[in-house]
Design a protein around this nucleic acid. Sequence first.
RNA 1: GGGGUCGUAGCUCAGCCCGGUUAGAGCGCCGGCCUGUCACGUCGGAGGGCGCGGGUUCAAGUCCCGUCGGCCCCGCCA
Length: 588
Amino acid sequence: MKRSCYCGELHAGMIGEEVVLEGWVNRRRDHGGVTFVDLRDREGLVQVVFSPEVSPQVHERAREIRSEFVLRIRGKVSRRPPGTENPKLKTGEIEVVATEVEVLNTARTLPFRLDDKDLSEEVRLTYRYLDLRRPWMQHNMKLRHRAAMAIRQYMDSLGFIDVETPFLTKSTPEGARDYLVPSRVNPGKFYALPQSPQLFKQILMVAGFDRYYQIVKCFRDEDLRADRQPEFTQIDLEMSFVEREDVMEVVEGIVRTVFELIDVELPEKFPIMSYKEAMLKYGIDRPDTRFGLLIQDVSQLFESTKFTAFKETLEKGGIIRGFKAPSGARFSRKELDNWGKRAREFGARGLISIKVTDQGLQSNLLKYLSSGEAEGLKEAFQVQEGDVIFLAADKEERVADVLGRLRLEVANALDLIPEDTYSPLWVVDFPLLDWDEEEKRYVAVHHPFTSPMDEDLPLLDTDPLKVRAKAYDIVLNGQEIGGGSIRIHRRDIQKKIFDLLRIGEEEARVKFGFLLEALEYGAPPHGGIALGFDRVMAILTRAESIREVIAFPKTQKAQCLMTGAPSPVDERQLKELKIKLTATPEEK
RNA sequence: GGGGUCGUAGCUCAGCCCGGUUAGAGCGCCGGCCUGUCACGUCGGAGGGCGCGGGUUCAAGUCCCGUCGGCCCCGCCA
């Protein structure tokens, strides 16, 4: 007996056919006389009827069947008796009347019901093979597969070549912590698992492949979040002889292609916003543009204010910004106090809230404001009755950060974030460098191989922090789903950057000399990007965390509850690697 | 490294604030009955000593300290 089709594929057109099904018992309903079994496989469910009138022996066998037993069934596809159809089931018009049944395997009682909606992740991850049987997870994994297939097809159609890059590679300075792999044949030396194939893809451009892509695992030994796993998957690509716009066009195509899978049509071109504008209006470099509540600078309104807090802030070179929350006036006094508390948790010194009522502006700040300032606020925020204005004063970065976070939480509280909207955009013109106060040196905002903007090149010598990078992030609904840049392909500029990063000649040579050397052998101008595949899939499936779209994810402590990894290893293995532990795993 | 939150039956949770009979519920599980159910119904039953360790107390799921683990967040994540 061979399976003739999947349970979920049966339909009314097959009535009268004899079929052989193989699958799991989703549920058994024993009526003493007739017994029903819902048989499940990856494509769906169908009701199987065990009737004593059809076969007393088969009916008798059905008594021993329990949930999640694996069965092979021969039977006839039949129309259900009138009145017994189940419109909730895709196969609800029909049922399979069993003429033979074979128990291929029994199953212990499951630790949880597969249809339980409130399972803890701890239990789900411990029994991930059972969790993955659930329709939601099957759907996610299938959609992930289809997305990967669609991307490969799209990339191939554009002439991109999939080249595999090594997992056992060289530890790189800068960036995230590396996962290290000891080399037995080279005692005392370690490989690192790649944080990304960055250097290899650039080398492939030097090698003349022109267009490279890979859907590839990357590894970063950093703390986990809902959208961060120690191993994750990137859609990685690199192109030669291109400018920023060329990369963007390809990526927009990828994202559009993937969203077609859930019947969402994204625009041909995604909006482009400068880093500066994002920080000003959204207080964050990955703005959620699905809703308003835009932040505005109102510093100049208060140039001659009598309100001491504002006055002092401005005198110290700080700024005053705020945003308007439509319908926010429905917040009670206590709720507004809580927003102030929240702002302080974010690091603000305080938060001013002003209600717009039919009596005019209402706030305990009002007595300190001139009528001109009050009018100015109304004008600046174009207020309507029922709005609330939130204002914060501090140095620029602090205000941006506080208001940026507050904007998200307030919008959430007021239910102003539309569910079914997908709002992609590019953020560009990032600064190339940032100043690390602790290490007293510049650090690369993106990575050390990112090209400065041509027109900013002179600034490298005079005011490095002002230099903008040829970098671009793609943001969707407030989540960074990818980032990339045009790379430096000239050795002299690369050297200048290393100097600023205080990466010495010798250090550079040791750490990525191979790339520097490669750049000297006719490296074409090139650039690329990496997209977070897991994050894209999480958005596509509306999952709360990327763990929902990863078959075997790690917990926040970076452990696998199913396998127990990571685990101690034999003394013998360590000895072979010439590794001595300074503490036992128990001691930590 | 830090903040928050949770940990009681196989699962989901109540009980903890205000210590005091044999620690509860729903679902699941086991057994009986039931020929049209599909979250089947119905009758009956089993099952935990409250994550772990210590302390306070006549008495600790309940209070205190520590620790382990799940989740969220800050730092970190070129």
